[in-house]
Simulated scan of single mutants.
Amino acid sequence: MGVFQTEESHGTRSSSMSFALRWMHENVRLISLVALLSLAMTFMLMVVLNVYAKKDISLVVDGQHIQVETTNTVLQHLLDEQAIQVGAYDKLSMPLQSELKDGDSVEIWRAVPVLVTADGQTKNLFTTEKTVKEVLAAANIPLSEDDKITPALNTPISNKLEIKITRVSTKLVNREVSIPFEFVKKPDATLLQGKQKLIQDGKSGLVVQKIEKVFEDGKLVSIKMVDKAYKSKATHKIVAYGTKKPEAKVRTLSAGGPGVAKIHSLGKEVKYAKVLKNVTLTAYSSEEDGIGTRTASGTTVTEGRTIAVDKDIIPIGWWVYIEGVGFRRAEDTGGAIKGNKIDVYIQSLKTANKFGRKKGHTVYVIGPVKPSAS
Protein backbone atom coordinates (compact mmCIF):
# COMPACT_ATOMS: atom_id res chain seq x y z
CA MET A 1 0.00 0.00 0.00
CA GLY A 2 1.37 3.22 -0.78
CA VAL A 3 1.55 6.40 1.48
CA PHE A 4 0.42 9.59 0.05
CA GLN A 5 2.03 12.93 1.21
CA THR A 6 -0.32 15.78 1.35
CA GLU A 7 0.94 18.61 -0.73
CA GLU A 8 0.72 22.23 0.60
CA SER A 9 -1.33 24.17 -1.69
CA HIS A 10 -0.65 27.69 -2.87
CA GLY A 11 -3.57 28.91 -0.93
CA THR A 12 -2.13 27.67 2.35
CA ARG A 13 1.29 29.53 1.94
CA SER A 14 -0.42 32.75 1.13
CA SER A 15 -2.46 32.57 4.29
CA SER A 16 0.70 32.22 6.52
CA MET A 17 2.48 35.22 5.05
CA SER A 18 -0.53 37.37 5.39
CA PHE A 19 -0.80 36.44 9.06
CA ALA A 20 2.86 37.46 9.68
CA LEU A 21 2.50 40.75 7.96
CA ARG A 22 -0.66 41.44 9.75
CA TRP A 23 1.04 40.65 13.15
CA MET A 24 4.04 42.93 12.41
CA HIS A 25 1.75 45.72 11.43
CA GLU A 26 -0.29 45.31 14.53
CA ASN A 27 2.84 45.12 16.82
CA VAL A 28 5.18 47.73 15.18
CA ARG A 29 5.39 49.81 18.41
CA LEU A 30 6.41 46.79 20.44
CA ILE A 31 9.10 45.91 17.96
CA SER A 32 10.46 49.50 18.00
CA LEU A 33 10.56 49.58 21.81
CA VAL A 34 12.45 46.29 21.95
CA ALA A 35 14.99 47.62 19.45
CA LEU A 36 15.54 50.84 21.46
CA LEU A 37 15.96 48.90 24.68
CA SER A 38 18.58 46.72 23.03
CA LEU A 39 20.56 49.76 21.85
CA ALA A 40 20.39 51.45 25.24
CA MET A 41 21.61 48.37 27.05
CA THR A 42 24.47 48.01 24.60
CA PHE A 43 25.53 51.68 25.14
CA MET A 44 25.32 51.41 28.92
CA LEU A 45 27.40 48.28 28.83
CA MET A 46 30.06 50.08 26.78
CA VAL A 47 30.02 53.03 29.17
CA VAL A 48 30.39 50.79 32.21
CA LEU A 49 33.21 48.88 30.61
CA ASN A 50 34.97 52.19 29.72
CA VAL A 51 34.48 53.71 33.18
CA TYR A 52 35.77 50.80 35.12
CA ALA A 53 38.58 50.06 32.73
CA LYS A 54 42.13 50.69 34.07
CA LYS A 55 43.68 54.07 33.21
CA ASP A 56 47.31 55.23 33.12
CA ILE A 57 47.60 58.59 34.93
CA SER A 58 50.74 60.73 35.25
CA LEU A 59 51.12 62.61 38.58
CA VAL A 60 53.68 65.41 38.94
CA VAL A 61 54.13 66.67 42.54
CA ASP A 62 56.56 69.61 42.94
CA GLY A 63 58.42 68.47 39.84
CA GLN A 64 58.61 64.79 40.83
CA HIS A 65 56.97 62.46 38.31
CA ILE A 66 54.77 59.47 39.42
CA GLN A 67 53.10 57.11 36.91
CA VAL A 68 50.04 55.28 38.33
CA GLU A 69 47.43 52.84 37.03
CA THR A 70 43.92 53.21 38.44
CA THR A 71 40.27 52.40 37.91
CA ASN A 72 39.21 55.53 39.79
CA THR A 73 37.27 57.94 37.71
CA VAL A 74 37.62 61.11 39.88
CA LEU A 75 40.90 62.89 40.69
CA GLN A 76 40.06 63.21 44.42
CA HIS A 77 39.62 59.42 44.65
CA LEU A 78 42.91 58.80 42.89
CA LEU A 79 44.76 61.12 45.30
CA ASP A 80 43.11 59.43 48.28
CA GLU A 81 44.14 56.07 46.83
CA GLN A 82 47.75 57.29 46.55
CA ALA A 83 47.65 58.94 50.04
CA ILE A 84 48.48 62.29 48.46
CA GLN A 85 47.10 65.14 50.55
CA VAL A 86 46.35 68.50 49.03
CA GLY A 87 46.71 71.54 51.30
CA ALA A 88 44.37 74.50 51.29
CA TYR A 89 46.95 76.68 49.49
CA ASP A 90 48.31 73.99 47.15
CA LYS A 91 47.64 74.41 43.46
CA LEU A 92 46.43 71.71 41.01
CA SER A 93 46.33 71.64 37.25
CA MET A 94 42.67 70.48 37.36
CA PRO A 95 39.85 70.55 39.96
CA LEU A 96 39.65 67.71 42.50
CA GLN A 97 36.27 66.57 41.14
CA SER A 98 37.53 66.34 37.57
CA GLU A 99 36.82 63.06 35.69
CA LEU A 100 39.93 61.13 34.82
CA LYS A 101 40.68 59.78 31.38
CA ASP A 102 43.36 57.39 30.32
CA GLY A 103 46.61 59.25 29.66
CA ASP A 104 45.75 62.31 31.79
CA SER A 105 48.59 64.26 33.44
CA VAL A 106 47.91 65.93 36.78
CA GLU A 107 50.36 68.44 38.30
CA ILE A 108 50.38 69.54 41.96
CA TRP A 109 52.36 72.53 43.28
CA ARG A 110 52.94 72.60 47.04
CA ALA A 111 52.52 75.98 48.78
CA VAL A 112 55.35 77.14 51.09
CA PRO A 113 55.15 79.78 53.85
CA VAL A 114 56.90 83.14 53.37
CA LEU A 115 57.08 86.24 55.60
CA VAL A 116 56.33 89.55 53.90
CA THR A 117 57.02 92.81 55.76
CA ALA A 118 55.63 96.00 54.22
CA ASP A 119 54.02 99.23 55.41
CA GLY A 120 54.70 98.44 59.06
CA GLN A 121 53.05 94.98 58.95
CA THR A 122 54.41 91.43 58.66
CA LYS A 123 52.21 88.82 56.99
CA ASN A 124 52.65 85.04 56.84
CA LEU A 125 51.66 83.98 53.33
CA PHE A 126 51.45 80.57 51.67
CA THR A 127 52.37 80.59 48.00
CA THR A 128 53.10 78.38 45.04
CA GLU A 129 54.76 81.21 43.11
CA LYS A 130 58.35 80.81 41.95
CA THR A 131 59.94 84.23 42.55
CA VAL A 132 59.66 87.17 44.95
CA LYS A 133 58.16 89.29 42.18
CA GLU A 134 55.41 86.72 41.54
CA VAL A 135 54.61 86.44 45.26
CA LEU A 136 54.16 90.20 45.65
CA ALA A 137 52.04 90.39 42.51
CA ALA A 138 49.83 87.52 43.67
CA ALA A 139 49.42 89.19 47.08
CA ASN A 140 48.43 92.48 45.39
CA ILE A 141 51.23 94.39 47.14
CA PRO A 142 52.00 97.51 45.05
CA LEU A 143 55.58 98.60 44.38
CA SER A 144 57.11 101.87 43.21
CA GLU A 145 60.32 102.38 41.29
CA ASP A 146 62.12 103.75 44.37
CA ASP A 147 61.08 101.01 46.82
CA LYS A 148 63.79 98.68 48.13
CA ILE A 149 62.96 94.95 48.01
CA THR A 150 65.04 92.43 49.94
CA PRO A 151 65.89 89.93 48.56
CA ALA A 152 65.81 90.93 44.88
CA LEU A 153 62.65 90.43 42.82
CA ASN A 154 64.16 87.59 40.79
CA THR A 155 65.10 85.57 43.91
CA PRO A 156 63.60 82.01 43.89
CA ILE A 157 61.10 81.27 46.65
CA SER A 158 62.21 78.96 49.46
CA ASN A 159 60.55 77.74 52.65
CA LYS A 160 60.08 80.55 55.23
CA LEU A 161 61.80 83.13 53.02
CA GLU A 162 61.67 86.60 54.57
CA ILE A 163 60.73 89.37 52.14
CA LYS A 164 61.05 93.00 53.21
CA ILE A 165 59.75 96.04 51.33
CA THR A 166 61.19 99.40 52.33
CA ARG A 167 59.05 102.26 51.09
CA VAL A 168 61.22 105.04 49.66
CA SER A 169 59.79 108.49 49.07
CA THR A 170 61.39 111.75 47.97
CA LYS A 171 60.34 115.27 48.88
CA LEU A 172 61.64 118.49 47.33
CA VAL A 173 61.62 121.68 49.40
CA ASN A 174 62.99 125.19 48.87
CA ARG A 175 65.36 126.73 51.40
CA GLU A 176 66.52 130.36 51.41
CA VAL A 177 70.12 130.88 52.50
CA SER A 178 71.84 134.21 53.13
CA ILE A 179 75.16 134.75 51.35
CA PRO A 180 77.57 136.89 53.40
CA PHE A 181 79.32 139.71 51.59
CA GLU A 182 83.09 139.78 51.21
CA PHE A 183 85.37 142.43 52.67
CA VAL A 184 87.65 143.86 49.98
CA LYS A 185 90.52 146.23 50.70
CA LYS A 186 92.03 148.39 47.96
CA PRO A 187 95.12 150.59 48.16
CA ASP A 188 94.66 154.35 47.73
CA ALA A 189 97.71 156.46 47.04
CA THR A 190 95.83 159.64 47.91
CA LEU A 191 95.23 158.53 51.51
CA LEU A 192 97.89 158.71 54.18
CA GLN A 193 99.17 155.47 55.62
CA GLY A 194 96.91 154.27 58.44
CA LYS A 195 93.86 155.99 57.01
CA GLN A 196 90.82 154.15 55.57
CA LYS A 197 87.82 155.22 53.52
CA LEU A 198 84.59 153.30 52.80
CA ILE A 199 84.10 153.04 49.04
CA GLN A 200 81.10 150.70 48.94
CA ASP A 201 78.96 149.29 51.71
CA GLY A 202 78.46 145.50 51.81
CA LYS A 203 75.13 143.75 51.39
CA SER A 204 74.33 140.07 51.87
CA GLY A 205 72.87 138.08 48.98
CA LEU A 206 70.12 135.45 48.96
CA VAL A 207 70.11 132.06 47.25
CA VAL A 208 67.16 129.67 46.99
CA GLN A 209 68.33 126.07 47.32
CA LYS A 210 66.25 123.13 46.13
CA ILE A 211 66.68 120.44 48.77
CA GLU A 212 65.92 116.76 48.18
CA LYS A 213 64.86 114.83 51.27
CA VAL A 214 64.75 111.03 51.07
CA PHE A 215 62.58 109.03 53.48
CA GLU A 216 62.61 105.27 54.09
CA ASP A 217 59.46 103.98 55.76
CA GLY A 218 58.74 107.55 56.83
CA LYS A 219 62.17 108.18 58.39
CA LEU A 220 64.50 110.84 56.96
CA VAL A 221 67.72 109.17 55.72
CA SER A 222 69.40 111.77 53.51
CA ILE A 223 69.36 115.44 52.54
CA LYS A 224 71.13 116.94 49.55
CA MET A 225 70.96 120.05 47.42
CA VAL A 226 69.98 119.28 43.84
CA ASP A 227 69.67 122.81 42.45
CA LYS A 228 69.99 126.46 43.40
CA ALA A 229 68.97 129.87 42.06
CA TYR A 230 70.27 133.26 43.13
CA LYS A 231 67.50 135.59 44.30
CA SER A 232 69.97 138.41 44.89
CA LYS A 233 73.75 138.52 44.74
CA ALA A 234 75.98 139.73 47.53
CA THR A 235 77.62 143.17 47.22
CA HIS A 236 81.22 143.42 48.39
CA LYS A 237 82.18 145.86 51.07
CA ILE A 238 85.08 147.88 49.63
CA VAL A 239 87.39 149.88 51.85
CA ALA A 240 90.35 151.94 50.60
CA TYR A 241 93.48 152.05 52.74
CA GLY A 242 96.10 154.74 52.48
CA THR A 243 99.55 154.11 51.04
CA LYS A 244 100.78 157.70 51.01
CA LYS A 245 103.73 158.24 53.29
CA PRO A 246 103.48 161.22 55.62
CA GLU A 247 105.90 164.05 55.15
CA ALA A 248 108.72 164.17 57.67
CA LYS A 249 107.85 166.59 60.42
CA VAL A 250 109.92 167.88 63.28
CA ARG A 251 108.13 167.20 66.53
CA THR A 252 108.10 170.03 69.04
CA LEU A 253 109.09 168.62 72.37
CA SER A 254 109.19 170.10 75.79
CA ALA A 255 112.19 171.91 77.14
CA GLY A 256 113.95 173.94 74.54
CA GLY A 257 111.87 174.49 71.44
CA PRO A 258 112.95 174.02 67.82
CA GLY A 259 115.83 175.97 66.44
CA VAL A 260 118.96 175.97 64.31
CA ALA A 261 122.37 174.94 65.59
CA LYS A 262 125.80 175.33 64.03
CA ILE A 263 127.38 171.87 63.73
CA HIS A 264 131.08 172.51 63.27
CA SER A 265 131.84 168.91 62.25
CA LEU A 266 129.47 169.36 59.30
CA GLY A 267 130.35 172.97 58.65
CA LYS A 268 126.67 173.81 58.38
CA GLU A 269 123.62 174.72 60.38
CA VAL A 270 121.14 171.96 61.25
CA LYS A 271 117.53 172.26 62.29
CA TYR A 272 116.59 170.50 65.51
CA ALA A 273 113.35 169.77 67.33
CA LYS A 274 114.70 170.52 70.75
CA VAL A 275 117.90 170.77 72.71
CA LEU A 276 118.72 168.90 75.89
CA LYS A 277 121.13 170.39 78.42
CA ASN A 278 123.23 168.65 81.08
CA VAL A 279 122.78 165.18 79.61
CA THR A 280 124.67 162.32 81.32
CA LEU A 281 126.41 159.86 79.00
CA THR A 282 127.30 156.25 79.78
CA ALA A 283 128.38 153.34 77.54
CA TYR A 284 127.33 149.69 77.13
CA SER A 285 128.54 146.69 75.10
CA SER A 286 126.95 143.52 73.77
CA GLU A 287 129.87 141.65 75.33
CA GLU A 288 128.31 142.21 78.73
CA ASP A 289 126.33 139.32 80.21
CA GLY A 290 122.63 139.62 79.41
CA ILE A 291 123.12 142.22 76.65
CA GLY A 292 122.08 140.99 73.22
CA THR A 293 122.80 142.29 69.77
CA ARG A 294 119.16 143.14 68.98
CA THR A 295 117.80 146.50 70.04
CA ALA A 296 114.35 147.34 71.38
CA SER A 297 113.47 148.72 67.93
CA GLY A 298 114.52 145.50 66.19
CA THR A 299 117.81 146.73 64.71
CA THR A 300 121.25 145.26 65.31
CA VAL A 301 123.43 147.24 67.71
CA THR A 302 126.06 149.16 65.76
CA GLU A 303 128.95 151.16 67.18
CA GLY A 304 128.92 154.77 65.95
CA ARG A 305 125.11 154.71 65.49
CA THR A 306 123.17 153.02 68.29
CA ILE A 307 122.24 154.73 71.56
CA ALA A 308 119.76 153.77 74.28
CA VAL A 309 117.40 156.54 75.40
CA ASP A 310 114.30 157.30 77.43
CA LYS A 311 111.68 157.15 74.67
CA ASP A 312 109.56 159.70 76.48
CA ILE A 313 112.40 162.18 76.02
CA ILE A 314 113.78 161.14 72.64
CA PRO A 315 111.50 159.21 70.24
CA ILE A 316 112.77 155.83 69.03
CA GLY A 317 114.16 156.10 65.51
CA TRP A 318 115.12 159.75 65.82
CA TRP A 319 118.60 161.11 65.24
CA VAL A 320 120.44 163.28 67.75
CA TYR A 321 123.65 165.18 67.76
CA ILE A 322 125.72 164.80 70.95
CA GLU A 323 128.37 167.44 71.43
CA GLY A 324 131.78 165.82 71.68
CA VAL A 325 130.42 162.46 70.38
CA GLY A 326 128.62 163.07 67.07
CA PHE A 327 125.43 161.87 65.38
CA ARG A 328 123.68 158.89 66.95
CA ARG A 329 120.28 157.21 66.43
CA ALA A 330 117.87 156.33 69.25
CA GLU A 331 117.40 152.59 68.69
CA ASP A 332 117.45 151.04 72.15
CA THR A 333 116.08 151.50 75.65
CA GLY A 334 117.23 150.46 79.11
CA GLY A 335 115.79 150.10 82.56
CA ALA A 336 118.30 152.58 84.02
CA ILE A 337 117.99 155.10 81.16
CA LYS A 338 115.49 157.64 82.44
CA GLY A 339 115.25 161.39 81.82
CA ASN A 340 118.29 163.20 80.41
CA LYS A 341 120.46 160.08 80.21
CA ILE A 342 121.91 158.43 77.12
CA ASP A 343 123.73 155.08 76.91
CA VAL A 344 126.15 155.00 73.96
CA TYR A 345 126.80 151.60 72.36
CA ILE A 346 130.50 150.57 72.05
CA GLN A 347 131.46 147.18 70.68
CA SER A 348 134.36 146.53 73.05
CA LEU A 349 133.43 145.95 76.68
CA LYS A 350 136.85 147.16 77.77
CA THR A 351 136.41 150.44 75.86
CA ALA A 352 132.87 150.83 77.18
CA ASN A 353 134.13 150.48 80.74
CA LYS A 354 136.78 153.11 80.12
CA PHE A 355 134.07 155.48 78.77
CA GLY A 356 132.74 155.82 82.27
CA ARG A 357 130.08 158.43 83.14
CA LYS A 358 130.24 161.84 81.46
CA LYS A 359 128.00 164.68 82.62
CA GLY A 360 127.05 168.09 81.26
CA HIS A 361 126.66 167.25 77.56
CA THR A 362 124.36 169.15 75.22
CA VAL A 363 122.23 167.03 72.88
CA TYR A 364 120.31 168.29 69.85
CA VAL A 365 117.23 166.16 69.08
CA ILE A 366 116.94 166.40 65.30
CA GLY A 367 114.25 164.06 63.94
CA PRO A 368 113.74 160.80 62.00
CA VAL A 369 116.00 161.91 59.11
CA LYS A 370 119.74 162.26 59.58
CA PRO A 371 121.14 165.52 58.20
CA SER A 372 123.36 165.04 55.20
CA ALA A 373 126.80 166.56 54.64
CA SER A 374 125.70 168.28 51.42
Rank of each mutant, 00 (worst) to 15 (best):
A111T: 08
R167A: 08
S58K: 14
G267Q: 03
D80I: 04
E247T: 11
L92W: 01
K148R: 12
R13G: 01
K350L: 05
T117C: 00
T351P: 00
E212A: 10
K203C: 04
P368G: 08
A83S: 13
G11N: 09
S348Q: 07
T252Q: 14
T302M: 14
T42E: 07
N124F: 06
L266Y: 14
P180F: 10
N159D: 15
V184G: 04
R29T: 09
E81I: 06
K271W: 02
A137P: 01
G257L: 03
K350N: 14
K130W: 04
T190W: 03
V369G: 05
E162R: 14
S232T: 14
I316A: 09
T295Y: 07
T306S: 10
I291V: 15
V369R: 11
R110W: 01
D343I: 02
M46C: 07
Q67Y: 05
I291P: 00
T42C: 07
V116G: 02
W109H: 12
T235L: 13
G339C: 03
T6K: 15
L143D: 02
L253K: 05
E129V: 06
V363F: 00
H361E: 03
K224Y: 07
Y89S: 15
K148G: 02
Y230S: 13
V270S: 10
K249Y: 07
Y364S: 04
T12F: 12
R294W: 05
N174M: 10
L220H: 03
K210Y: 01
K271P: 02
D201Y: 06
Q76F: 06
K268E: 10
I66Q: 15
N174H: 11
E288R: 09
K130G: 06
K338W: 05
Q200L: 04
K244C: 01
A255K: 04
L198R: 08
E287M: 09
E7S: 11
K228L: 12
T73N: 15
A139H: 06
V177A: 05
D227V: 10
E81T: 12
E145Q: 13
N27L: 08
L191Q: 08
D310A: 03
T362G: 05
L30W: 14
D310V: 03
G326C: 07
I84S: 01
F43L: 15
I337M: 03
L37Q: 08
L161G: 09
K224D: 11
G290H: 08
T166P: 01
L136Y: 04
M1I: 08
V301W: 04
T252K: 14
N353H: 13
D147E: 03
A83R: 14
T190H: 11
S32H: 10
V226E: 11
A248Q: 10
T190E: 14
K164N: 14
T127L: 08
E99N: 09
V369A: 08
N50T: 13
K268T: 14
K186F: 00
S204R: 13
